[in-house]
Amino acid sequence: MNIVVCVKQVPDTEVERSLVPGDNTVDRASVDGVINYLDEFAIEEALKIAEAHGGEVTILSMGPAKAADSIRKALSMGADKAVHVTDDALAGSDALASSLALAAALRQVGFDLAIFGSESTDARTGLVPAMVAERLGVPQLTLAGKVDVAGSEVTIRRVTDDGVAVVTGSLPAVVSVNEKINEPRYPTFKGIMAAKKKPVQTLTLADLGLEAGSVGLANAASWVEDFAARPPRSAGVIVKDEGDGGSRAAGFLAERKFI
């Protein structure tokens, strides 16, 4: 089985993140890049499926040169090889353009299963997996809390606020996963050493047969006009419980008409 995992490098969420004033794009330069949290679960699921059914796991990431670090980390978890889609013209791409480039790369690389995280922590749109499924005309099996591959069929347990649904489609298919699906492994020392020698292919827009006019910030279909930092919250009243903490909290709630 040929499994491709779409991995996005995102700014670390442990620190305050922002946009770049001027072009209003995500500030990727001044914050450390890490693998999008949910994509680690996608990698783990791919490795598990490959272990159970045989096959190869390829990491596919679209991003600036810096994303190479995250690709290495994904390889050190145990993936076999990687494809890095990188081109200056892609900078600032929105979900529509990202899905175009990822779909083109998936077509070129070939896949039985394409596994995604269900959402990225920077854009938080959750659009890309459904968009890629639409572009490739393959089953969309998203928001999976469980994935089962049997022969040429994939079945997932889809978990949403509405409840649980069992959804089936045939390979090739797009799958996205949630954070309850597994426990991502840590790279081992051996894994880290081995990752250094694993092949990473770089693809440009031209390699994918795409025009610069269909991607990137200048051509984004969704456009940020401006942004503002949330006004800081004014300092509140903090009291120490002297046996009256509950009453004082009730007093505050009453004053604000919550009780």
Partner: peptide, 10 residues
């Protein structure tokens, strides 16, 4: 932490 104002251009 920030609020963005955005539009659709296509």
């Amino acid at each position: 932490s920030i609020t963005v104002r955005s539009i659709v251009r296509k």
